[in-house]
Design a protein around this nucleic acid. Sequence first.
DNA 1: CTCGTTCGTCGAACCGGTTCGACGATCTGC
DNA 2: GCAGATCGTCGAACCGGTTCGACGAACGAG
Lengths: 340, 340
Amino acid sequence: MATIGDVAREAGVSRSTASYALSGKRPISDEVRRRVLAAAEALAYTPNAGARALATAQTKVLGLLAQFHEDEFAPAMMQYILGVTNTARDLGYDTLLVTEADGVRALRRVTDSRMVDGVVLMNIAEQDARLPILRAAPQPGALVGLPGDCSGLDVFDLDFEEAGRVMVDHLHRLGHRELILVSQPEHVVERGGAYVWRLRDAALERARQRGVTLHAVYGESRQPAVGRLLNQLLEAHPEATGLLINNEAAAAALPSVTYARGLRVPEDLSVIGRYSAEFAATFSLPYSHIESAPDRLGAMAVRQLVRRVESQAAREEPFVVRFISPELVSLGSTAPPLPR
Amino acid sequence: MATIGDVAREAGVSRSTASYALSGKRPISDEVRRRVLAAAEALAYTPNAGARALATAQTKVLGLLAQFHEDEFAPAMMQYILGVTNTARDLGYDTLLVTEADGVRALRRVTDSRMVDGVVLMNIAEQDARLPILRAAPQPGALVGLPGDCSGLDVFDLDFEEAGRVMVDHLHRLGHRELILVSQPEHVVERGGAYVWRLRDAALERARQRGVTLHAVYGESRQPAVGRLLNQLLEAHPEATGLLINNEAAAAALPSVTYARGLRVPEDLSVIGRYSAEFAATFSLPYSHIESAPDRLGAMAVRQLVRRVESQAAREEPFVVRFISPELVSLGSTAPPLPR
DNA sequence: CTCGTTCGTCGAACCGGTTCGACGATCTGC
DNA sequence: GCAGATCGTCGAACCGGTTCGACGAACGAG
């Protein structure tokens, strides 16, 4: 493998001149620049990433810390990851994907050893043990998901409160007066998944204001449990005319349940979900839904992160907490309730 | 951030002694070792990854090159990725996930710049332009998926030929004489996805031997197209009593189609899929299926890769092409056909 | 008591880049 | 024709580790 010393020798100049010719950081005569570029081309020179990182204190790599819990819906994660890796690459960065169960240790390793210039954290818990580490780290960090304490970090998330209100308002306006909300499994909340109750509590509050009855329950993350649960719910609340779903697995399982029960959507039951367009497309889901825009969130986090990485000025700006406002994608799965 | 020089000064020894005390590569007195370890602890010393990579020519990072095509089923990919990242971490490596569309450029970048010690390639095409690059690279490489030319690389894949035969044999033995096989979309084949025709051709051959009629068609990767296709197929071949599915999206869409058509599984239609346990669980799929074991494949590829990375002897062993033999997981979705 | 080992430690070089200060050559202005 | 500025290049130092050869002290053997 050719080093910059080889290039310099081939071009008949010093190492520093070769470096300047390649980087353009100092004026170099056209003649010499030509010779250096030709030599680099001829030797197929590529700078050694480790050496460059050592010299410049920049690795051009971002860390992406994601955790996969047994009872979580892995497929939904993929879109976030792609949002991050693709945006990072567009900005000139590669991505170190760390899925280690011990997130604290993983974060320590990649920041302390200076493997990365910045870190994106996913699966944020209400009380996330990784946050103190990240705040103390020399690299900037960005979160996809809202923790209890946002200080010292840039945070990006869907506005789950507003999502809950939009769902309730939409069905209330159509005339529905009794609704069911299926959330994620209780484990997700216990682990600190605040978005679950953020959506639920806002929906409950809005339902109260509108005089709507809302049955809010935890869901399951797997078949057949989640299908069973949906059946039980529909049985237990025969008066309910609307179903709100903040749970990918439940959304995926719903079509078979409604078929089996002979329920027509939206005539017998209006449905609104909360998931991504990608998810809806791959799973055939015919329900109107709040778009959770995972790729957009990943991209936003990376862009802000890279700004802070690359500019001292940006690093001193105040931290941002930015919510994507929920957009209701209408696929015709809601309608006024039938008169009974 | 503390360097090894700081640790040495704190412990009152030279940098080299500190290094040896930490690595144990030369005998060091207990007294000095204690002091060095204490100093490292006190200063929260972590070696700089770039510097170490430069000195040792080892980065302790593996590259994972995956490509996401528009018309592919992204959720299925997640399991492969987790198999790779988790196994890598167990063996002391981190993973650079590269999803760049231009795979050749991406591979050049990570190998030429020495960012990684080895590379795992996914989404292997029959004629994969990345392979010549990988063969010429100084780092070893492993493939998940079977290319036309396996020379110079370790290859891991499901035995799709055998999978096709197992599917046909299983239904033939139950008495079925007319079957439908839904494969991936034609694009996947055109792009070089050999596994599609490997399974199909083996199934056709075996069906011919057994005197079974097999209608093999390309599928779609998205709803609603894939649902429409399934309906058309069942309509076009009313005599078919068995359905083979080598297409995740089609498998996910099938339950609603059978419900809608009033078909009972397995009484009216026997079904065998080809996907992972994880996929089956998250999607509620009640079908007997060939387990495609993505996590196991990812893990195997990484283990072999790391062996070659870490041992000169291993690097000189002949290259392997290893197939996982298809295992039929029975969930009761097959039965003898009803007499007509 | 001395010589030859062995053991533990140190200094220096090296990995492959980047960057700073200096220096010689050329150009400008008077 | 000379002082001073400008331009292009070079040498050396540095980033933070690892590793090799050497060297002094302690040790055992004769």
